[in-house]
Design a protein around this nucleic acid. Structure first.
Length: 204
DNA sequence: CCTACGATCTGCT
DNA sequence: GCAGATCGTAGGG
C-alpha cells in the first residue's frame, strides 16, 4: 500500500480547532512500531479549546503536568490515560501557549489490520476494533511515550492519501462524556463522516 | 499524604 | 440500563 503525503506543520496551526477537527476527517493516522505499520482513516473527531471550553483539560489555559503537551506548538500528540484503562490520542493544534487539541475518536482500518487484531485480541475485522477512542488507541499501538511527540514520524504521523471529504459528508453533534462541562457540553464539536460504519456508537 | 473521579469499554441483566 | 475494571492526576488538607 502506497503512503500519502505527511501533513505539513501549517495544517495544525491555521484555523480554529473546530476547523482542524473537520479537516482531519479523511486523513490517515499511521504508526510504525518495530517495523509493523498500521494505518487508519480518521472518521470521527472532537475539538477541545483551552481558552474558553470547560470540557478541555486545559480550560482557562491552566497548565498541569498531564496537559503540558497541549501547550506546545500544534502538530504534536497529546496522549493520556483515562479511567485508569484507556489511552486517548489527541492532535495538538494552534501555537505555543494556546492549548487546543482534537481527540481522534475512531478510524477505519486501512493497513496492518492483522497487527491491529492482535493488539486488540480480536479475530474479525469489525467496528469495535478501532471505533471509540480507547479502542483505536489500542489498535494503533498508541503508548504514553508518544505524548508530546511530533506528528511527522518516525513512529507516528498523519498523512493525506487523497480522500477528499466534502462538507456535506460531515455531521456534527455534542461531544461524548463531557456532561460535567455545563453548557459547554452542548457545543456541537464532535464531527464524523456520515454513514461511515466505523464511527463510534453514541450512547443514549 | 489522602481521596475522588474521569474526553471509556465490556459484559451481564 | 448498569456496574466493574483499574490507576494517574488533580486538588485539598
Amino acid at each position: 500500500m502506497r503512503g500519502g503525503s505527511v501533513l505539513p506543520a501549517a495544517f495544525y496551526l491555521e484555523g480554529h480547532v473546530t476547523e482542524i477537527a473537520r479537516a482531519l476527517l479523511g486523513k490517515c493516522l499511521v504508526t510504525r512500531l518495530n517495523g509493523v505499520k498500521t494505518a487508519g482513516l480518521i472518521v470521527e473527531t472532537e475539538a477541545y479549546e483551552g481558552a474558553t471550553d470547560r470540557a478541555c483539560h486545559a480550560f482557562g489555559r491552566r497548565k498541569t503536568r498531564r496537559n503540558e503537551a497541549m501547550f506546545e506548538e500544534g502538530g504534536r500528540a497529546y496522549v493520556y490515560l483515562c479511567y485508569g484503562l484507556h489511552l486517548m490520542f489527541n492532535v495538538v493544534t494552534n501555537r505555543v501557549g494556546e492549548p487546543d487539541a482534537v481527540l481522534i475518536r475512531a478510524v477505519e482500518p486501512l493497513e496492518g489490520s492483522e497487527a491491529m487484531l492482535a493488539r486488540r485480541g480480536m479475530e474479525k475485522i469489525q467496528p469495535p476494533l478501532s471505533s471509540g477512542p480507547g479502542n483505536l488507541a489500542a489498535a494503533m499501538g498508541i503508548t504514553r511515550q508518544m505524548d508530546k511527540k511530533p506528528l511527522h514520524g518516525p513512529d507516528l504521523w498523519i498523512e493525506d492519501r487523497g480522500r477528499n471529504v466534502q462538507p456535506d459528508e460531515i455531521a456534527s453533534g455534542r461531544r461524548i462524556g463531557v456532561e460535567y462541562a455545563g453548557k459547554d457540553a452542548d457545543k456541537p464539536w464532535r464531527f464524523w463522516i456520515k454513514q461511515n460504519p466505523w464511527v463510534s456508537k453514541a450512547k443514549s
